[in-house]
Amino acid sequence: MSCLRVEEIGITFGGLAAVSDVSFTVEPGEIMGLIGPNGAGKTTTLNLISGLYEADRGRVYLNDQDVTKKTAYERARLGLGRTFQTPHMLTRSTVSDNMKLGTDLADQMGFLKSFLGFKGHNFLDEVDGLMEIADLKVDWKADISSLAYGQLKRLEIVRGLLAHPKTLLIDEPAAGLNAKELEKSVALMRHAAREGVGIVLIEHKMDMIMNVCDHIVVLNFGKMIAHGTPDEVSADEAVIEAYLGRK
């Protein structure tokens, strides 16, 4: 059973086919890299998968369930996590409120149950483990806006993982992070993959992609030009021509 399957998905913005005929499958515990030059349609593909854009063509399956017609929050509740290029945190809330949002999604508890104090997943236990892997130490009561960018990037992945997703879409985790912070992000992803989460990863840092990913899909001008293991992709003529170029 695959945790995410995309079939010939496509969207057109005012005559420009931003993404067309992209198909791939992500198995549980697998890290899939999605690469391509700037403007190749990587983030658009993620937006199509997570339901922020409505696809013009094609289908999206989560755990073999067709979710093409479902909205973004319904897909999230079916186990699709997401992080963003620039972190989308609740800018006027505390760190703990931000992170509990992840546990809330995992629990999917109604208002009344939550109001009466029913217990779901233990937030503290889970978050402590993840925070240790991410090497983050934050004041829970602090305002989220007081944190540094590198911390936010990692916190967003932690928040995504707190929701116990089956698939996690990660958009450029390395952007703006230093080497040490990046290492911790990778550790988080590896941890998640070990737990059986399928990961789709967009990244520009080639060494990281080659190092982390089990297989790679290459996009150019919204089209899939290659896919395979890192070795296959880096040997592929079309990829070298379109993307790495300067052989």
Binding site: Y73, T91, L101, D104, S114
Partner: peptide, 29 residues
């Protein structure tokens, strides 16, 4: 005070601060 600590309260905060994040965290805005 209690509402603020419930899932509903946090959904509200998500709606307030970042609708995109709210959608992706499973909140029906």
């Amino acid at each position: 005070h209690r509402i603020k600590q419930t899932t509903f309260g946090r959904s509200l905060m998500a709606v307030r601060d970042d609708a995109t994040a709210a959608y992706c965290m499973g909140v029906n805005v």
